[in-house]
Design a protein around this nucleic acid. Sequence first.
DNA 1: ATCACTGCAAAGGGTTTGCAAGTTC
DNA 2: GAACTTGCAAACCCTTTGCAGTGAT
Lengths: 141, 141
Amino acid sequence: MHERLLRSKGLKLTPQRLMALKAIEEGGHIDIDQLHDSFNRLGMKIPLATLYRILGELSSVGILHTVTLSGQKTRYEIAKGDHPHFLCEQCGQLEDLHITMNKIASIAQQACIHTTHSVSIMLHGICQNCSAFPAIDKEGS
Amino acid sequence: MHERLLRSKGLKLTPQRLMALKAIEEGGHIDIDQLHDSFNRLGMKIPLATLYRILGELSSVGILHTVTLSGQKTRYEIAKGDHPHFLCEQCGQLEDLHITMNKIASIAQQACIHTTHSVSIMLHGICQNCSAFPAIDKEGS
DNA sequence: ATCACTGCAAAGGGTTTGCAAGTTC
DNA sequence: GAACTTGCAAACCCTTTGCAGTGAT
């Protein structure tokens, strides 16, 4: 399945690439360090430099999509079309919002005289989990 | 005017801060290098480190707003409430879109079960100027 | 005069690159 | 076997920080 993806882009199948795709698929929206940890947990040593290269390639061919966040590490997700995200300001978790971008884009487009190719929308707030347990510090003190 | 802003935040009036605010106000959405150039053009030498510090302070007290872009330098604008932006993929210019965020946010919110504090919306496309002169390369070859 | 701010230089962190060795097809 | 990919180390940003000197109130 990921094999098809890679082949379709003319990329060779390597364990590193397959593992990266698997981890990102399972992890949802993860940054490079979380990805690196996924490798380590399975005993697969991989240099960050290689991960950066893999993530860059997969992004540039459109297999991955990057979410750039102010002051935070870039998150990666399997590309599945534009959609809004919700970022929890407390725990940093990123969630997909299930709404077609068309609605939003069409409204934004009303104010925009240019040709729009894509729209990125990020909501910032506090997620349900953090609302329920506001004092819990994930990072540990 | 900028004097009031700084005073209201308990910040001292310095030529560097006033100049930064003036340049950002005039420049619209500029990055730190463009800001640095503004200083240089007027013969004001200033280290980047100081600019970073000034921009960080003014942002943290809410006088400035930062726009984080994937793969590009952060842009700064005078904070004037949330609003969508349009980023030209060709020339990189950033424009304000004049539409209330409420409309967009309310639609996005329909898909979002969490409390939302802010919304950032970025449209990506080709601006009018670049559509008219697609071959012109601002950077020079 | 005091506290805040700037300038300078050096450190820091994330990301990229060159090249040799190892893999995939 | 040819082309691509990985691993390693070093280089490269951009950004932050420590500290002494300067400036604002």
